[in-house]
């Protein structure tokens, strides 16, 4: 069920908001249509939901049920576990994103000026960073229930205020200032930039912040993650 949801969530968002807003060029978006900027932005929504809810809730539930404890009693290396644990959600997330791209480009004819290589790199990098963020929640919170609550409490405002679901251009200035504290905002800015052929060097700020989240997150995980 959750696989199905993750795969189709992006395309569904696009279809629903496509009905509402269409894709007429608008001055506020610098001549781009709503859907043009939505495709790279919704990517962040998918990454955020998997990273902050699906992945950490699954892991915390496994910890609670004693599954992780059983793994910890084997010579399985923790890094191997984390990589294997991330693989399935990573594949599902990236395939879901691909479906969103394909629908946007082929059916809605949204503008895509960037390079596939850059977009793929940015999606992978952002996904890994948000996954790390998710494991931080598991490390810091005692139960699966707490992870579910905090994950949702974080992801909902992030989706609404980071420009992921609603373009930053239409949000009030105050919201835009607060939203710089959300990692997801920087994912949105990076992906939108690369989508419209801006260079990596124009987004060193976002890359540095996400890299910081990644590194600090890994340190927190190493210090706090317990197998039971």
């Amino acid at each position: 069920m959750s696989v199905f949801f993750t795969l189709l969530f992006g395309p569904l968002l696009l279809i629903m908001f496509g009905f509402i807003f269409g894709n007429e060029p608008q001055a506020i978006f610098g001549g781009l249509g709503h859907l043009d900027i939505s495709v790279p932005s919704y990517t962040a929504v998918i990454i955020g939901i998997t990273g902050l809810t699906t992945l950490p809730i699954t892991t915390a539930t496994r910890r609670e049920n004693g599954v992780l404890r059983r793994f910890a009693a084997s010579p399985l290396r923790p890094l191997t576990y984390f990589l294997a644990d991330m693989l399935a959600p990573f594949v599902v997330t990236t395939v879901g994103i691909l479906l969103l791209f394909l629908l946007g480009i082929t059916v809605y004819h949204v503008r895509f000026d960037g390079s596939w290589l850059n977009i793929i790199l940015a999606v992978c990098f952002s996904t890994l960073t948000l996954f790390v963020f998710g494991y931080v929640l598991v490390g810091l919170l005692p139960t699966a229930r707490a992870v579910m609550i905090v994950g949702n409490v974080l992801i909902i405002p992030m989706n609404v205020f980071s420009g992921a679901l609603i373009p930053l251009e239409v949000l009030p200035d105050a919201v835009r200032r607060v939203s710089t504290f959300f990692p997801l905002t920087h994912v949105v800015t990076l992906l939108r930039g690369l989508w419209f052929a801006e260079s990596w060097s124009a987004h060193l700020h976002e890359v540095a912040i996400l890299l910081g989240v990644f590194v600090v997150g890994v340190v927190i995980i190493v210090r706090t993650f317990r197998w039971e």
Binding site: N65, V67, R70, A73, P75
Partner: peptide, 18 residues
Amino acid sequence: GFKLRERIGIQFQSAALP
């Protein structure tokens, strides 16, 4: 720990798998 766990078998009182 890792070297040891290669050579011992463990059955827990409370453990689970999916």
